[in-house]
Amino acid sequence: MNIFRLVGDLSHLLAIIILLLKIWKTRSCAGISGKSQILFAIVYTSRYLDLPNFVSMYNTLMKIVFIAASYATVYLIYMKFKATYDHNHDTFRVEFLVLPSFVLALLINHDFTVLEVLWTFSIYMESVAILPQLFMVSKTGEAESITSHYLFALGSYRALYILNWIYRYTTEDHYDLIAIVAGIVQTVLYCDFFYLYITKVLKGKKLQLPA
């Protein structure tokens, strides 16, 4: 474990908590893409099937929290507060993300076993899972501040993981190209948002995308 990965995981945890609190407190999931949240639930389910393989208390605890929180978020959006779910703007065709990720996982992986292919699928899936949410923000042309804080924390997590991978390569000579390439793609997808967040939201303005 290193500081980059620890802060990255905590940023990830913070993002998930911000989102849950936003929906729970405002009793509304307006502006939130349910599709992205379903994709995240798929990501954690397919990645953490190795939960029985004990790595550390921290590792096991975080996996349980991420799985539970992602399903809780999907439940809040599609069941409890479904009246506030914005169908009309959450229209990204997720099949164009799921299928290619799965096919790519079958073609490019470290080991052609069920667990490893599903882990690889979760890595590819996670790198594009935020697209429906970013698409929804671009369609509505804006995002609530709390939603942009969620996106900033979520985007920062994988950006910090890139620093973790650099650190691990230089100190432990450990690297995983699949995770690294997907993590770079994932972080690049946030760049446009990061720019808007830093130039607007941090100055107290609302996140307005050029429509």
Binding site: N59, H110, Y161, Y175, D176, A179
Partner: peptide, 10 residues
């Protein structure tokens, strides 16, 4: 290809 090891990252 890094040899197959368990994934210790989240």
């Amino acid at each position: 290809d890094s040899e197959h090891e368990i994934h210790d990252e989240l």
